[in-house]
Design a protein around this nucleic acid. Sequence first.
RNA 1: GGCGGCAUAGCCAAGUGGUAAGGCAGAGGUCUGCAAAACCUCCAUUCCCCAGUUCGAAUCUGGGUGCCGCCUCCA
Length: 462
Amino acid sequence: MELFLYNSLTRKKEVFKPSRPPETGLYTCGPTVYNYAHIGNLRTYIFEDILKRVLTYNGYKVKHVMNITDVGHLTGDRDMGEDKLEKGAQREGKSAWDIAGYYTQAFKKDINRLNILEPSIWCKATDTIGEQIELIQTLESKGYTYTINDGVYFDTSRFENYAKLSHQDLEALQEGARVEKNLSKRNPADFALWKFSPSGVQRQMEWQSPWGVGFPGWHIECSAMSMMYLNDMLDIHCGGTDHIDVHHTNEIAQSEAATGKPFFSFWMHGAFLIITGGKKMAKSEGNFLTLESAFLNKGIDPLAYRYATFQTHYRKPMEYSGKVATAAQNGLFHLRNQVRTLMDAGEPAAIDSKFQKRFHETINNDLNMPRAMAVVQDLLKSNLNAGAKLATVFEFDRILGLDLSELAKKQDLPEDIQKLVQARKDARKAKNWALSDELRDKILALGYQVQDTAQGMKVIKP
RNA sequence: GGCGGCAUAGCCAAGUGGUAAGGCAGAGGUCUGCAAAACCUCCAUUCCCCAGUUCGAAUCUGGGUGCCGCCUCCA
């Protein structure tokens, strides 16, 4: 079955084919670890997780590389301003290295809670400084660079197809630029490959280079690391939609200038999450919701957020509010209860091939998760027997990643709950309804839910 | 100022020429001692507005209006 993916490069849905099937190289731009990830960031990682699972489902062997940006990402515009890591270090009174380590761990915890599969390779910008320097040297030897007072820059006018991803008119861009100009740059779009440490300032993160002590520009790390780990498997490169115009455009320019070969055949970008009636969520706006603040602290299962993102196609901005979180929580619980009910009625049997095909076609159509979720509901409401439904929904969960098959595992109830349950059974036998209801409330208060089904009393942790 | 995107029920939304998916919320019902859970039924003659193309448009074209993003760190 053909897999259609939307390619930002051509602005079209195209049939995906890796260059060395079944091997497939996937590079996803990772976090800059100077703060917690907000749920908007996480939306993109969930989209990339679905992509990876769909690739795998289609039989591809995915080598997935994700970088950790732990140096060089500046707060200001166009290569001005402070380094985010150094700034975070000042803010929290820790070293830049500690900051990076702390927020890297926090990030990994978040993606685990969202059932996002870990990449095959994690790579840190600071671990590949040597490779980045080599790449800059290559660019230098080919005449793409120039050095000014604060760093080594890439001359975008020397690279012919600079705007092939952004499709922007550079002339028009020049006119409208409202930026704090770096007047020494030859062209407004030129970007730093290597930044010099400011004189008289001891940076926490700095390295020797042929051009002087300093640190790499933000874009060079992704070029260096993707080439280093993926070699000739430059198949898909992902990130947020905001990366199209600057970050990815610059990556392509410097990479193709260095190698003379195309840099990644597919570029895929996830749309933003926006606060309903408000603005995009951004760390720099200080309005960000984290998995912890918006879900865990409110007693909402983090997987409800994963479920919530399935309601909106990844290329469309997602409207978010507290209502969305509640709706997703209810929807996820309902789905789990549907599966639990099926498990009471039978064992997983053979997968229904018709539904499997429908689901497969849907996800292969540029990861249409909203429709895929509709297929799930159609399956559950169909007149197939419980065994077929169970097997098929578990099959779908390979993509969904909602831990539906985990529900089959026996969960041992804590002793105090077991006692209350037994007491309630006795009370019901004695038709002591008042006591029975009281015990039911007690059990609920302890985080468990009593369901009186035809098969008897059932207690679940919702 | 330039470039791009979006506007579908109370909320989140799919659908891009053939007569409106799905989820949440809501209403009614089955079950139940009651409730919850589950299940069944109902819930947009209509897709921001105006004009046009077409046998036929939410889907195409033109013009409005509103919102969002990028051009500056950002997923």
